[in-house]
Amino acid sequence: MNTTIRILRYGDYDAMQKAGSNIPATNSSNHATSTAPEWPLWEVFVRSKQGLDHKHVGSLHAADAAMAIENARDVYTRRQEGVSIWVVESKYIHASNPDEADSFYEPASDKVYRHPTFYDLPEAIKHM
């Protein structure tokens, strides 16, 4: 039986994909990284200490919410960055369209009276 061995070099994959060439399937049983891209993407929000709000810190891949939280713990809080983690699957985040930035955000730029900067705040009030 004749077997053709094709050696793939860096960059070949992309070129073959564009040319519609048949890319040899990777054997998933001994090539574990092939499972990773199938995991959905999650956005991670970390609260750095009590009383502050959760901030977006990045994204990661995970099979489900439980794994996403563990992965977030391992990837984003290993230097004491947080005390609480939220994760949400990226597909559930709906974003404004950058093309509409003019109509969305420009109108606010000349309406300075919307800022509460004309009030005198007591010294005791912080975080305003």
Binding site: T33, T35, A36, L60, H61, D74, V75, R78
Partner: peptide, 8 residues
């Protein structure tokens, strides 16, 4: 097997 598990 994945970056996240590598770090874990």
């Amino acid at each position: 097997p994945a970056l996240e598990q590598d770090i874990a």
